[in-house]
Amino acid sequence: GPGLTDLFKTEKAAVKKMAKAIMADPSKADDVYQKWADKGYTLTQLSDFLKSKTRGKYDRVYNGYMTYR
């Protein structure tokens, strides 16, 4: 089956995709945050998933999740 690194890459891609969806349409934020909360994502995990070469690119999404939880 898929190894943990593959799983991480898949999760990371999914999280980034959802983060971009929030940035494009902030009204989606609560739905996405709820999904992440259901998956039990911690802020540390989210921070790892949303690492970007562009500093602060996903800060709004991260901060939103922090206040959501």
Rank of each mutant, 00 (worst) to 15 (best):
T5F: 07
G1W: 09
K16C: 06
A37H: 14
P2K: 06
M66H: 06
Y33I: 01
Y33W: 02
T44Y: 10
R55W: 09
L50T: 02
D6P: 10
V61F: 02
K57T: 04
A29L: 02
Y65S: 00
D48V: 15
L7I: 12
A13S: 09
S27H: 06
M66C: 11
K35P: 00
D25A: 03
R69D: 03
T10V: 11
N63Y: 15
K28T: 10
T44S: 12
T42H: 03
K28W: 05
A14G: 06
K9Y: 08
Q45N: 06
W36F: 03
S27A: 09
L7T: 13
G3T: 11
E11C: 06
D6I: 10
L50R: 01
Y62E: 03
L46F: 03
G56V: 03
A29E: 05
V32W: 02
M18R: 02
Y58P: 01
R55C: 13
Y62S: 03
D6C: 15
I22M: 09
P2Y: 05
T42S: 09
V32Y: 07
L43W: 04
M66R: 14
Y41I: 14
G56R: 06
R60H: 10
F49G: 02
K51G: 11
A19H: 01
F8R: 08
G1E: 09
Q34I: 05
T67M: 13
Y68G: 01
T42W: 02
R69I: 15
L43M: 10
K51F: 06
F8P: 06
Y58I: 02
T67D: 12
A14V: 11
A29F: 02
L43D: 06
K35Q: 15
D6M: 06
N63E: 14
A19W: 01
A24S: 08
M66Q: 14
I22W: 01
K17D: 07
L50W: 03
G40E: 05
Y58F: 06
K9I: 08
L46E: 00
T54G: 09
Y33F: 08
V61G: 00
Q45M: 11
K51T: 11
A14W: 13
D30W: 09
R60V: 13
K51C: 15
T5A: 12
G1M: 09
K20L: 12
P26D: 05
A37F: 14
R69K: 12
I22E: 00
K9D: 13
T10G: 08
D31T: 10
L4Y: 10
G64A: 05
M23H: 04
E11K: 03
G3Y: 08
A14T: 08
R55I: 15
P2I: 11
T5P: 09
L7D: 14
D31H: 10
V61K: 00
W36I: 02
K28N: 10
A24M: 10
L4I: 14
A29V: 03
Q34H: 06
G56M: 04
D25C: 09
T67E: 14
P26K: 05
P2H: 13
K57H: 07
A37V: 15
T42G: 05
D59E: 12
D59P: 02
S27K: 10
S47F: 09
L46P: 01
Q34K: 15
P2D: 12
M23V: 05
G56P: 04
G40M: 05
F8Q: 09
Y68T: 02
L43E: 06
K20C: 07
P26I: 07
K51R: 10
V15I: 07
T5K: 12
D38A: 13
P26S: 08
L4D: 15
K28A: 11
N63G: 06
G64M: 03
M18V: 02
A24H: 08
M18L: 08
K16L: 14
Y58M: 02
K16F: 04
K20S: 08
F49Q: 01
F49Y: 07
T67R: 15
A19P: 01
K39A: 13
Y65L: 01
D48T: 14
V32K: 02
V15R: 00
N63V: 14
D59V: 07
Y62V: 15
K57V: 06
D38R: 09
W36A: 01
S47R: 15
Y68N: 02
V61M: 02
L50I: 03
D6K: 07
D6R: 04
K57D: 05
A14I: 13
S47N: 09
V32D: 01
D25T: 03
T44F: 09
T10P: 07
A13Y: 09
K53E: 13
D25K: 04
R69F: 08
T54L: 07
G40Q: 04
Y58K: 00
L7P: 12
A29W: 02
A24T: 08
K57S: 04
L4A: 13
Y68H: 05
A13H: 15
R69H: 09
A14L: 14
Y65E: 01
L46S: 02
K17M: 08
K28Q: 09
D59W: 14
D38N: 11
M23E: 03
S52C: 09
G56E: 04
E11Q: 09
D6F: 05
G56H: 10
K12A: 14
Y33H: 02
T5Q: 10
A24Q: 10
T67V: 14
T10A: 14
T5S: 11
T54K: 14
R60P: 08
G1S: 10
F49C: 05
R60G: 13
L46Y: 00
G3S: 14
D6V: 10
P26A: 06
A19L: 02
T67G: 07
A21T: 12
K51E: 11
M23F: 05
G64K: 02
F8E: 08
L50H: 00
Y58S: 01
K17N: 07
K57Q: 09
G64Q: 03
T42Y: 02
G64D: 04
T44C: 14
A29K: 04
G3K: 07
V15D: 00
D38Y: 08
Q45Y: 03
T67Y: 13
Q45I: 09
T42I: 03
S27E: 07
S52G: 10
D38P: 00
D48S: 14
L50D: 01
K20Q: 13
D31F: 13
L46Q: 00
F49H: 02
V61D: 02
I22K: 00
Y41E: 00
K51M: 09
K39D: 05
K17L: 12
G1D: 11
G1Q: 11
G56D: 07
V61P: 02
A13M: 10
F49A: 05
D30E: 12
A21N: 06
K12Q: 15
V61Y: 02
V15K: 00
Y65C: 01
G40A: 04
T54Y: 10
K39Y: 09
S27M: 07
Q34F: 05
A19S: 03
T5M: 13
K39L: 12
L50A: 01
P26T: 05
T5H: 11
K57I: 07
L7M: 12
G1H: 13
L4W: 11
L4R: 10
K28P: 01
G40T: 02
L50G: 02
K35V: 13
E11T: 08
D48A: 15
G1A: 10
T54P: 15
K51I: 10
A14N: 11
V32I: 13
Y65V: 00
L46V: 07
G64S: 03
S52H: 07
F8C: 13
A29S: 09
T67K: 15
K12W: 04
A21F: 07
D38K: 09
K20N: 14
L50S: 00
